[in-house]
């Protein structure tokens, strides 16, 4: 039994200091606009209470921004769907803070920073900010984090017949930790996946775009042998990559760039030591 999962991408969000928003990112990719010459300050998480906005960690701010924009594009109420949050390293600045404080004055550890140190902090703030009581999860799989998050989001969508939000993000490493754990800048990407292949089911009334079919399959072996079929997709991701260089969530860019292009694409992303996720994205309109 070798299954395929059919979903449709109905909403997309992207935020990075030099790619602040999906529409601009698409324009940059197509050469219609320039990326901001200097990185923008991080977004303010409008979903949170005013007192929470300023002190929310960067991880939470960028994840919530991408998530909110993806739901908006899909025309789906955030409170109505389950969510999958994927981050390679979680909140690296808080890890640096915790380790620094524990090495000197452990009794002075901040309770707020401690509860924000959990890997599901962004997921927690998302459900609190949107009033969402649906299931929410937080994953990591080191270099395969985006692919494993996508697999779980698509699995939830198909297994339970529900739209699912996927949010993938990483921020810069800080302090001594940065000498072994490498991540720079900020990058958050979000997708709303609908269950079923092209033409299945009904779309949310407000959906402003035609969702693109995405077929996932698990294949034996590592992904090195899978060719990118999308014309120019590799080069395009490279152009973006220069604007988000060094971020641990870079593996999300191949699918995001394929989504920004109209052509059909075939991608392979590793999810284990001896298997990969094969992605077939249908052409857009």
């Amino acid at each position: 039994m070798s299954a395929t999962l059919d979903v449709r991408v109905a909403g997309i969000g992207l935020w990075s200091p030099r790619l602040p928003g999906w529409a601009l990112a698409c324009d940059v990719l197509h050469g219609r606009a320039d990326a901001p010459a200097t990185p923008l300050p991080r977004v303010s998480p409008a979903l949170l209470a005013p007192t929470e906005r300023r002190r929310a960690p960067d991880t939470v701010a960028i994840a919530l921004e991408a998530a909110a924009r993806a739901c908006e594009m899909a025309g789906i109420a955030p409170a109505s769907i389950p969510s999958v949050f994927a981050s390679t390293h979680g909140d690296l600045p808080i890890s640096d803070y915790m380790c620094t404080t524990l090495a000197s004055t452990p009794r002075l550890l901040s309770p707020t920073r401690f509860h924000n140190s959990v890997h599901n902090a962004a997921a927690g703030y998302w459900t609190i900010g949107t009033g969402c009581v649906q299931a929410s999860t937080a994953l990591t799989a080191w270099g395969d984090t985006f692919a494993c998050g996508l697999l779980e989001a698509a699995s939830q969508a198909v297994a339970d017949g529900t739209p699912v939000l996927l949010v993938a993000y990483d921020v810069a490493a800080k302090g001594p930790l940065a000498t072994v754990t490498h991540s720079e800048g900020m990058l958050a990407a979000a997708l709303v996946l609908l269950p079923g292949g092209p033409g299945t089911g009904s779309l949310p009334a407000a959906a402003p775009i035609r969702p693109r079919g995405l077929r996932l399959a698990l294949r034996a072996g590592r992904a090195g042998n899978v060719q990118d079929a999308g014309h120019g997709e590799r080069a395009a991701a490279g152009a973006w990559a220069g604007l988000v260089a060094g971020n641990a969530m870079l593996p999300c860019l191949r699918l995001m760039a394929a989504l920004a292009h109209g052509e059909a694409a075939l991608l392979g992303l590793n999810v284990g030591r001896g298997c990969h996720l094969e992605l077939r994205l249908e052409a857009g309109t």
Binding site: H89, H119, T145, C148, L151, T181, R273
Partner: peptide, 30 residues
């Protein structure tokens, strides 16, 4: 060692140690 300072560290280790080649993922929801 980078593989010691990331939240998937133990999943990364166990997949090798147990000889599992399928999807290897860590759920971290406290």
């Amino acid at each position: 060692h980078a593989e010691l300072h990331t939240p998937h560290s133990t999943g990364h280790f166990l997949a090798q140690a147990l000889g599992i080649d399928g999807p290897s993922v860590t759920v971290s929801t406290a």
